[in-house]
């Protein structure tokens, strides 16, 4: 996969390709440089957030919990203007 055609912008690589993974462990502590704090689990309350959004011509903010009471589909994707 070339950098130019990748859907994982901006660097572009096939995930799981060990030759391209960078080892980001901290040299002194031997712990990962960045702390991953995933807390979303099926069967548990969805972690709340508030973030800027674009909605129907307006720049606004959206808060997940303002939508509780309805079914919510929350979808993440790598980037605007990518191919898939």
């Amino acid at each position: 996969m070339s950098k130019e055609s990748s859907c994982a912008k901006p660097t572009g690589m096939v995930l799981g390709d060990a030759s391209q993974q960078n080892d980001s462990t901290h040299p002194e502590t031997n712990l990962p440089e960045t702390e991953v704090i995933m807390s979303a689990r099926v069967g548990d309350k969805a972690p709340d957030f508030q973030a800027p959004s674009y909605h129907q011509g307006e720049f606004t903010e959206v808060k997940l919990s303002d939508n509780f009471g309805k079914w919510i589909l929350l979808c993440f994707y790598p980037g605007d203007f990518t191919y898939v």
Partner: peptide, 19 residues
């Protein structure tokens, strides 16, 4: 972290806010 992007994650959340 290394790509600086988000994977194609999809979450169905019910009216009680449960995933």
């Amino acid at each position: 972290e290394s790509l600086g992007v988000e994977m194609r994650g999809r979450f169905i959340i019910d009216p009680d806010g449960i995933i």
